[in-house]
């Protein structure tokens, strides 16, 4: 379970996140939607402290994330980025094994065996020795998901994982994410893919101007939005 309470974040005078609370139970998928600049990424990045919140607390399984336990807590919530951020000087296999070996102290053999299983899971077992520059966008993102999974995290954080992809590659990444959701992975997903959110999310949050305007189950938000801003946003994107 991940829980954030009263999260505030300012960037030189800009109040990007204004006191947001979220809770995601184990095995649930939370999708965060909203217009550009509404603070979705900032909120997500506050969860693993890539942005340090000015106020508020984040808890994973009831344990508060602090500067002292930050590295350990980060291993419990792996992140998948919009621009993949695969390590460009490492092969696909090394991308997946580097953190388990150096952060968790797993042996190289064990990490590689696990990495090959994960590559199979995302359908890229034949790409183990390839470097990221020789992969398509969709393949890169699937490797990034495998890299995140290799830490055996309790929660996966996704920041618009398909926004940098050519349209024909969006499906292959969403399919992997759907499989993970079905297997009971806890996920927080910032996304513009409304179809995915409607199908996969347990809960949906609509954000605007750094605030949660409306939250509820996927049905509530997509079929019966209560707030005018939500209705207008959905009208535009659906």
């Amino acid at each position: 379970m991940i829980k954030a309470t009263g999260i505030h974040k300012h960037f030189n005078g800009l109040h990007a996140v204004k006191g947001v609370d979220i809770t995601v139970q184990d095995g649930e998928v939370l999708c965060i939607i909203g217009p550009s600049g509404s603070g979705k990424s900032t909120l997500l990045r506050c969860l693993n402290m890539l942005e340090t919140p000015d106020e508020g607390i984040v808890e994973v399984d009831g344990v508060q994330v602090t500067q002292e336990n930050l590295r350990e807590m980060r291993t419990k919530m792996a992140m998948v980025f919009q621009n993949f951020n695969l390590f460009s000087h490492l092969s696909v296999l090394e991308n997946i094994t580097v953190a388990p070996v150096h952060v968790k102290g797993v042996s190289k053999e064990e990490a590689e065996e696990k990495a090959l299983k994960l590559l199979k899971l995302v359908g890229l077992e034949e790409k183990a020795g390839v470097y990221p520059r020789n992969l398509s966008g969709g393949q890169k993102q699937r490797v990034a998901i495998a890299r995140a999974l290799a830490m055996e995290p309790e929660i996966l954080l996704f920041d618009e994982p398909t926004s940098a992809l050519d349209p024909e590659m969006v499906g292959e990444v969403l399919d992997v994410m759907k499989d993970l959701a079905e297997e009971g992975m806890t996920m927080v997903v910032v996304t513009h893919e409304m179809g995915f959110a409607r199908e996969v999310a347990d809960d949906v949050i609509f954000m605007a101007d750094g605030c949660i305007v409306e939250s509820g189950t996927a049905q509530q938000i997509f079929d019966h939005p209560q707030q005018e801003r939500t209705q207008n946003f959905l009208k535009k994107v659906l």
């Binding site: 890539l50 980060r74 980025f81 621009n83 951020n85 390590f87 580097v98 953190a99 952060v103």
Partner: peptide, 14 residues
């Protein structure tokens, strides 16, 4: 690329 550092941080590296 700063994204490389963020990815490493997000994996718990020191």
């Amino acid at each position: 690329d700063p994204g490389q550092v963020e990815a490493a941080q997000s994996l718990g590296m020191s």
